[in-house]
């Protein structure tokens, strides 16, 4: 498989006027502005293979949206090269955008006061989609996203989740090779979220669409992506499979224990007691402890009378929070 997206040493600086404090400085500032350079992306390089679903993650303000915007041709980087599907996005904008679809989760691409289907028809004209192909795609989108009933209604009457489904459909009418999703599940309820995820997977499988998505919902990442790219403070910190990261933290377990009687003090070698309340205690593995259930039962039952216990690994969110902390983001 060939790499469809190549990002090499991309830097993006923004020049922003600097605010000054104090009355006189403000007046001075009004006439002569000082600017500050913000480095949104610093030497970012990565490549994405055709047909991959890539999760692009990082804390707020890390540069995720900036990267998406460069990839979709909206922004021009300060330096570096980017070739997507053989084209430089910001140079041949009109040719380039024919093959991409974009959903910015917080913005809308559909027309506000007309029925959704009218917006679709217009997009059909704009992308010059042949009639038969349009019909086929629309039918497929209708059945996969279950939006048939929504199409006759004006966008302003739709709920957030309904809107998002329509937005997704709109970005796929022309069957783009590459789909950029900037927080596609933001604000969606559980059912819609699952539907959207299934749909993304489906498109990827059926059409071989390469999908790049940014999200703060780690379940999206876990459910969808084969690969993640972690960015923080404008730098790429990790790229590879999410499983690997999970493995790295998989040794860390939390154990909730219920005792048969009240104990005033609980301690166990190799474990840290996080919480203890007479009959109940929460333990955590210390960094060097390898958790093993049989060993644990033996060890704890020697000291205490145990009724029940429950072991849990770190949640994906916790793993990510740890990861961010580790990289000092």
């Amino acid at each position: 498989m060939a790499s469809i997206i190549k990002f090499e040493n991309i830097c993006k600086n923004f020049k922003v006027p600097q605010k000054a404090e104090g009355r006189f400085k403000m007046i001075k500032n009004f006439f002569c502005r000082k600017h500050r350079i913000i480095e949104a992306l610093k030497d970012v390089s990565f490549s994405i293979q055709e047909g991959e679903i890539v999760g692009y993650i990082g804390p707020n303000g890390a540069g995720k949206s900036t990267t998406i915007k460069i990839m979709s041709g909206i922004l021009t980087p300060t330096s570096g090269t980017c070739v997507i599907d053989g084209l430089v996005p910001w140079q041949n904008r009109k040719t380039f955008v024919k093959n991409i679809g974009v959903v910015f989760g917080q913005r809308s691409q559909l027309w506000w006061d007309v029925p959704v289907i009218d917006s679709f028809e217009l997009l059909k004209d704009i992308y010059k989609i042949p009639d038969d192909k349009y019909k086929e795609t629309l039918q497929l989108l209708n059945s996969a996203l279950n939006i048939e009933d929504l199409l006759g209604r004006p966008l302003r009457q739709l709920s957030l989740g309904q809107k998002m489904k329509c937005e997704l459909a709109a970005s796929l009418l022309h069957r783009p090779k590459i789909l950029f999703l900037d927080e596609p599940t933001i604000g969606l309820d559980a059912i819609t979220k699952l539907a959207v995820r299934d749909f993304i997977k489906y498109i990827n499988k059926e059409w071989g669409t390469t999908i790049i998505l940014t999200t703060h919902d780690m379940n999206d990442i876990e459910a969808l992506t084969n690969k993640i790219i972690l960015i923080g403070k404008g730098r790429i910190l990790y790229q590879g499979s999410f499983e690997k990261i999970k493995e790295k933290y998989s040794d860390e377990k939390t154990i909730e224990v219920e005792f048969a009687k009240d104990y005033n003090k609980v301690s166990l070698a190799g474990y840290k007691v996080i919480e203890h309340n007479l009959r109940f205690a929460t333990l955590k593995t210390l960094p060097n402890t390898k958790f093993h259930t049989t060993d644990f039962i033996n060890q704890i039952s020697k000291k205490y009378e145990v009724v029940d216990f429950q072991v849990s690994s770190l949640s994906v969110d916790e793993i990510l929070a740890k990861l961010y902390k580790e990289y000092e983001l």
Binding site: G73, K94, V102, F104
Partner: peptide, 13 residues
């Protein structure tokens, strides 16, 4: 509000 970015991703002037 920045919605103008959708104008950029259409193959049209």
């Amino acid at each position: 509000n920045g919605n103008v970015c959708y104008k950029f991703v259409r193959p049209i002037n």
